[in-house]
Computed example of a mutant assay.
Amino acid sequence: MTALMSAAYFFLMDQLNLIQNRLKKELGEMNSIIHQSLYTPNELMNQVVTNYLTVKGKQIRPIMVILSAALFGNVNEHVLHAGAALEMLHNASLIHDDVVDETSLRRGRQTINSIWGNHLAVLVGDYFVSNALSAGIRTGNLEIIAALSDLGKELSLGEIDQICNARDHHFDEPSYISMIRKKTASLFMNCAKMGAEAAGASAEEYAPLVSYAELLGLCFQIKDDIFDYFDDPAIGKPTGNDLREGKVTLPLLYALANAPQQQAQEMKELLKRGNLNDSEIAILIDFAKANGGIEYAYFRMAEMQQEAERYLDNYPESEWKESFRDLFSFIISRQK
């Protein structure tokens, strides 16, 4: 990382830290709700859950729930339960993903499946889901409960779409965007919706914010996919891991659509054959980079950020609106 990139990264981390500090009290109360919800007299479950919650991550999703409520001027107890519900549902999806992907490390720590095995990890993930629904019920808002239910379906369908895209060799951007909208953006959209709902805003009032969150979520996944093209142990997954699992993401999709036809066809044949070895994965990564795939992914994120700003124009200037802008900039420029 160059000195300029390093300085920009720490500036953006400061932006995230500023948002977290603005919401320190609310995030603390929300995390207390999560701990209380997940506590059980069962010694083994309590041990596994407590160990898992030791590292919280950036908590971007519950931050969005609370920011959405703050934008409408009413961060109340129902907002905190909505944030807790979404954070537990999100973590459930991560725990299950680690089982499916056979992941051994997350956030620099061993995953539940790597320590305790897949059987227990699946049960812990299910336990998180059940407690997420319980937290949603405590809001007393049917729209929030329905959103949690719909979100669970969207996350599952997004993963299934990704499997189908890989199996059926869909090498087009619309299929990719549709998949990440379900897989990732749906969670961000529901963060905005649930926070605003719990704050008492109407659907008409929060509709632009949900559209903003959709674009933010799409960019989150695109940036996550870019990481796969670079070798950085801090990110937590090896280079080419997506390709190893048959997942073709935006940088490579752009290259396949815009490289010389014969070269692109050779790369498609390689992808269709599957079971790629390390040298073949390196060829595909170099192909994507050489044909402008990384630059295009950043271009698309910049386009989405500009579009998102127009949705924010529906709301008056405030520290909370500025926090949403800072969060978008952080998500695009983050290094892990």
Rank of each mutant, 00 (worst) to 15 (best):
A290W: 13
L253T: 02
I235S: 11
E295Y: 05
E317L: 08
F287P: 00
K237L: 10
A302D: 15
A282N: 11
A297T: 02
A308W: 02
R310I: 13
N275C: 08
N241P: 03
K237V: 04
T239A: 13
G236T: 12
M267V: 07
E317W: 11
A282K: 08
I283W: 03
I281C: 01
R310Y: 14
L270S: 03
N291V: 05
N241Q: 10
D313F: 12
A302H: 15
P316F: 03
Y311I: 09
L252N: 02
L271F: 09
D286E: 14
E266R: 08
P260S: 07
K268E: 02
N277V: 04
Q306T: 08
D242Q: 08
Y254F: 07
M267E: 01
A255M: 05
A288M: 10
G240R: 05
G274L: 08
E245I: 09
L252A: 10
Y298G: 02
N314E: 15
D286K: 00
S279F: 15
V248W: 05
Y298I: 09
P316H: 08
I285T: 07
Q261N: 09
L243F: 07
I294Y: 03
L243E: 06
L312R: 04
D313Y: 11
R273V: 04
D278W: 07
L252W: 03
E295G: 08
A302P: 08
G236S: 13
G240L: 11
L276S: 10
I281G: 04
E266D: 15
K237S: 15
Y298L: 13
L276C: 13
L250C: 01
L276W: 09
R310E: 13
E303C: 06
M304C: 15
N277W: 00
I281Y: 00
L276N: 10
Y315K: 08
I285E: 02
K237N: 11
D286L: 10
A255L: 01
E309T: 15
N275I: 02
R310K: 14
E280N: 06
D242F: 03
Q263T: 09
E280D: 15
E295M: 05
Y296G: 00
A302V: 13
L271R: 05
A264G: 00
N277F: 03
A290V: 06
M301K: 05
I283P: 01
E307G: 15
K272A: 14
G236W: 15
R273W: 03
A264Y: 06
Y311A: 07
R244T: 10
L271D: 09
E307Y: 07
P316N: 09
Y254D: 00
S318K: 11
E309P: 08
I285F: 06
A302E: 14
D278A: 14
R244F: 15
M304F: 14
L271I: 05
T249W: 12
A290R: 14
L252E: 06
A290M: 09
R244G: 11
L243M: 06
G292K: 03
E309L: 11
N277G: 04
P316V: 04
Q263A: 10
N314Y: 11
G274W: 13
G292L: 04
G236R: 14
K268M: 03
Y311P: 07
S318H: 12
N277A: 08
L312M: 14
E317V: 12
E307T: 10
N258W: 04
G246A: 12
G240M: 13
K237E: 15
S318D: 07
F299E: 12
L312H: 02
T249E: 13
A259W: 06
N291H: 15
N291A: 11
A282Q: 10
K268I: 01
